[in-house]
Amino acid sequence: MKENLYNYILGIADNSLILGQRMGELTGHGPSLEIDIACTNISLDLFGQVRSYYQYAAKIAGDGRTEDDIAMLRKERDYLNVLLVEQPNTDFAYTIARQYLFDVYHAMFLTALQSSHDITLSAIATKSIKEVSYHQRFSSDWIKRLGDGTNESKLKIQNAVNTLWTYTDELFHQTEADKAMVTEHIGVDVTQLKKAYYQKVTSLLTEAALEVPKLKWFQKGGKSGIHTEHLGYLLSDLQYMQRTYPNMEW
């Protein structure tokens, strides 16, 4: 089995799975009907992308594991998503800030992944980038509306950005699988995206009349399976059916 490629795919897919689950939690709980539908649409896009990645990963594993096994039956430490995407829906501002901070990275990452020498990853990226550009429009729009809205909305979105900022640096950390895949022209060198990411985010936050947090110390660990306490709760929800009724089918 191509261990590095397998781990590399999970690193990408797990971000979308966990963020998709977070957005899906808002089904029937969005602050308004339109936003409820928007969040669940984003969730559906992410889950769709995840299926393509996990199907490919299952093929590489080649040991009978299916896409569902990979999604549903791993333990917390085996998930390789960044800490940012597992942060909870504390309030609507947190949902939007988390989405925006990930969308900007996601769009840049997929743009670069389109040139991957791996044709499956390149095809998934080309497909997904079209959907993610809609996500980014949605979250950017709301950052501006909240930042440039009432005193209350401004306070809330600023708080959310300040709290989540500590998880942004991890997006640009390289894992062993990353390094190996970059060498083979399959993976994206995320360190190269960092400067453009912070430029883009800074420019939008400024336009939204928000302050750009100044931090020297950042949280990390998700990419190597060390998560915040929130992931365990999320997984117990996500995996409930498969754990309670093993092998059940829809």
């Binding site: 339109e34 539908i37 928007a38 649409n41 984003i42 809609y134 949605f138």
Partner: peptide, 13 residues
């Protein structure tokens, strides 16, 4: 435009 996201992923309201 009411919302960029509609009743299914491919539509806006």
């Amino acid at each position: 435009l009411v919302s960029q996201f509609g009743s299914t992923a491919c539509k806006a309201q």
